[in-house]
């Protein structure tokens, strides 16, 4: 079988992805450090963690806006459109492939094309990450940058406390996404094959 090369990740997407990945890692480390800070042995000095988290937070807002707008202009957003009909079936099929088929060396159930660059599981997790979790973390994060503006009380709960809860919840699941994302990209002919694609833009099969 001849090797086919598909150009799936244009330059802007790769640049965004690199910046985004770096920001998320920094935000994750500083975020965890702040949450579990301890005066005797802070992971990162508290004040620096706060400053880095704030600065990188602002960068990732810009980066997300770029992803959002560039996605629409370039048409990349079409890969994030979920077709609900039969979705569960497709997810199940892809899950089965990762759990069993792949290990047995069976062929992929969904082939990567220029029109469909994500398999169903990728699609759902990328939509969840990019159109649910990241926006949620950004909206709550912006609110927390200006905490005086948050409503003081939501019935008996502190508004700020509620906002931080959703902020850390979304942040937590982004980190879980990242861990799974990092593992799943190693599933392929060669563990580093997909990684190469997001660097040079070409998907090889």
């Amino acid at each position: 079988m001849s090797n086919t090369k598909l150009y799936l990740y244009p330059v802007w997407l790769r640049i965004w992805h690199a910046i985004n990945a770096l920001c998320i890692i920094l935000l994750g480390i500083t975020g965890i450090s702040m949450q579990y800070t301890n005066i005797e042995s802070p992971l990162i000095n508290f004040n620096s963690a706060v400053s880095i988290h704030n600065l990188v937070g602002v960068i990732i807002i810009a980066s997300y806006l770029f992803f959002f707008i560039a996605g629409i202009i370039s048409g990349n957003v079409k890969h994030y459109r979920l077709l609900f009909k039969g979705l569960l079936n497709r997810l199940f099929k892809q899950g089965e492939y990762y759990l069993f088929g792949y290990l047995k060396g069976e062929p992929k159930p969904f082939h990567i094309t220029k029109e469909e660059k994500f398999n169903p599981l990728q699609k759902v997790s990328y939509v969840a990450a990019m159109y649910v979790l990241v926006p949620a973390v950004i909206i709550t994060g912006v609110a927390l940058l200006f905490p005086e503006m948050i409503i003081e009380k939501f019935y008996t709960m502190s508004g700020i406390r509620l906002t931080t809860f959703f902020h850390s919840l979304a942040g937590f699941f982004i980190l879980i996404f990242l861990i799974i994302h990092l593992y799943v990209i190693t599933i392929g002919k060669h563990p580093l094959k997909n990684f190469k694609s997001i660097v040079n833009g070409y998907h090889e099969s």
């Binding site: 702040m34 949450q35 008996t156 709960m157 406390r161 931080t164 809860f165």
Partner: peptide, 11 residues
């Protein structure tokens, strides 16, 4: 600890 405390203190 989640609802009654009416302030949030990072860390």
């Amino acid at each position: 600890s989640f609802i009654i405390n009416d302030a949030y203190i990072i860390g």
